[in-house]
Write a protein that binds this DNA or RNA. Structure first.
Length: 426
RNA sequence: GUGAAUGUAGUUCAGUUGGUUAGAACGCCAGAUUGUGGCUCUGGAGGUCGUGGGUUCGAGUCCCAUCAUUCACCCCA
């Protein structure tokens, strides 16, 4: 049998209803925080990610779906959303508009990774970006939105980790200091970390290997090497969070995997998810726009994995239980007398025109079977048109919830149901 | 990319030391006197036992490969 490619998912009912619910929630919160939607292409020139995300990162080195199109262009299915947003921001002249610009995106990302619960090759990210604001309040605003999403999904026990990784200037100085301490103990490092020593030494900090942890245990901290600007920003962010009573943990080993981050980085974790427990993660990227060829323009944002949000919500306090129902099922026998099915189908058409959701049995089944079907579709009402009804110009309306039945003149059925459905009387 | 576990009807699972027509529950379809759902009862449909090789008189059961899922590492959302 032909199967869907590895790491992809078919989202069918009732899961698709959960997706619709979460997407609506994310859009609603975006509106409250005044983020507007941006939609960028699913693929970009490979160079965009190579430059923005960084040649040394795992994403660029081994996780991209890269291909050449028939015109020989070197393209890549987007592995993340920030670089494309920054590109569009520049290319479409948003940099010249009112600042800061607050945008959100919601769509598929692609990474060639080994799939696991909460990790897929095609996955959906919701993300927000604030471009043009250097303020720590913007960092806070983005973090607050992330925390709010978790709250609204009923996730209790999330932990917010924050850290600062400085700017290129102070990081350069820190890096030398860091290297001095670590290189004498290079022998204790794992294979990966020896490579990191060359390409991206700070990542040794978040290696889980015992030897590596010991090797960097007494290493100087970034926090103590910040330049004035970065130190002020870092202090300001913590003051804001504290003043709002937001609980957070400073994690000096928090170093994100994408090169464009500067100053603030943060992650929101929810442990019950297992190994892939980061639900939302982001940070500041003050150098990205410039890196892409624009004038310097600060930015902050985060990305959330929608699959993980759903997975978490399911395990959380308030599992997603979408109620799927239709207003009215129109029941009519497949009679020799064509007037009966014609009247039934016409009623269905009229109901739908009036905005009442409805369905019928297309398989010509028995009345009993149709009732059963109506029940499974979770119909609130059933409109019955049998020989009797059609002859008398009536329709029998049955409330599936209460069990009562009423005979209503055909011409009044639409109005009657409109009233009922809008929750008028019982 | 590394290590490990799993893979039997739509779904969740049973299938004894390899041995005749592969089972259950739920779901689905159809019935249980008069056109009417949810409960109950009866019957029915539905499985190339992930796929491809191999061992054997004989394999769902053993071996190899492959694909997929899950867990840990890695990485991250």
């Amino acid at each position: 049998m032909l199967r869907a490619p590895r790491g992809t998912n078919d989202i069918l009912p009732p899961e698709s209803h959960k997706w619709a619910y979460i997407e609506a929630l994310l859009r609603r919160l975006s509106k409250i925080y005044n983020f507007e939607e941006i939609r960028t292409p699913m693929f970009e020139h490979t160079e965009l990610f190579a430059r923005a995300v960084g040649e040394a990162t795992d994403i660029v080195r081994k996780e991209m779906y890269t291909f050449k199109d028939k015109g020989g262009r070197d393209l890549t299915l987007r592995p993340e959303g920030t670089a494309p947003v920054a590109r569009a921001f520049l290319e479409r002249g948003l940099a010249g508009g009112p600042l800061p610009r607050k945008l959100f995106y919601l769509g598929s990302m692609f990474r060639y990774e080994k799939p696991q619960a909460g990790r897929y090759r095609e996955f959906v990210q919701y993300g927000v970006e604030i471009l043009g604001s250097p303020s720590a309040y913007s960092d806070a605003e983005v973090i607050l939105l992330g925390v709010r999403i978790a709250e609204e999904l009923g996730l209790t026990g999330t932990t917010l980790y924050i850290n600062t990784i400085g700017c290129p200037e102070c990081r350069k100085a820190y890096r030398e200091d860091f290297l001095k301490h670590v290189s004498d103990r290079a022998g204790e490092l794992c294979q990966d970390c020896r490579e990191r020593l060359e390409v991206n030494p700070l990542r040794i900090l978040d290696c889980k290997n015992q030897g590596c942890r010991e090797a960097v245990a007494d290493v100087p901290l970034m926090q103590d090497h910040l330049c004035d600007d970065c130190r002020r920003h870092w202090a300001a962010l913590q003051e804001i969070l504290t003043s709002l009573g937001i609980e957070y943990a400073v994690d000096p080993t928090l170093v994100r995997g994408l090169d464009y981050y500067t100053k603030t980085v943060f992650e929101l974790k929810w442990p019950p998810l297992g190994a892939q427990d980061t639900v939302i993660a982001g940070g500041r990227y003050d150098g990205l726009v410039e890196e892409l060829g624009g004038k310097p323009c600060p930015g902050v944002g985060f990305a959330a994995g929608v699959e993980r949000l759903i997975l978490a919500a399911e395990k959380g306090e308030r599992p997603l239980m979408p109620e799927v129902s239709i207003d009215c099922f129109v029941l009519f026998p497949d009679s020799e007398d064509r007037r009966i099915p014609e009247a039934g189908f016409k009623l269905l058409v009229d109901l739908r025109r009036a905005g009442i959701s409805g369905d019928f049995d297309a398989l010509g089944r028995s009345v009993k079977a149709q009732m059963k079907h109506a029940d499974r579709l979770n119909a609130r009402y059933v409109a019955i048109l049998g020989e009797e009804e059609v002859r008398q110009g009536l329709v029998t309306i049955r409330s599936m919830e209460h069990g009562w039945q009423k005979q209503v003149p055909t011409g009044q059925v639409v109005d009657f149901l409109k009233e009922e459905v809008s929750g008028g009387s019982s």
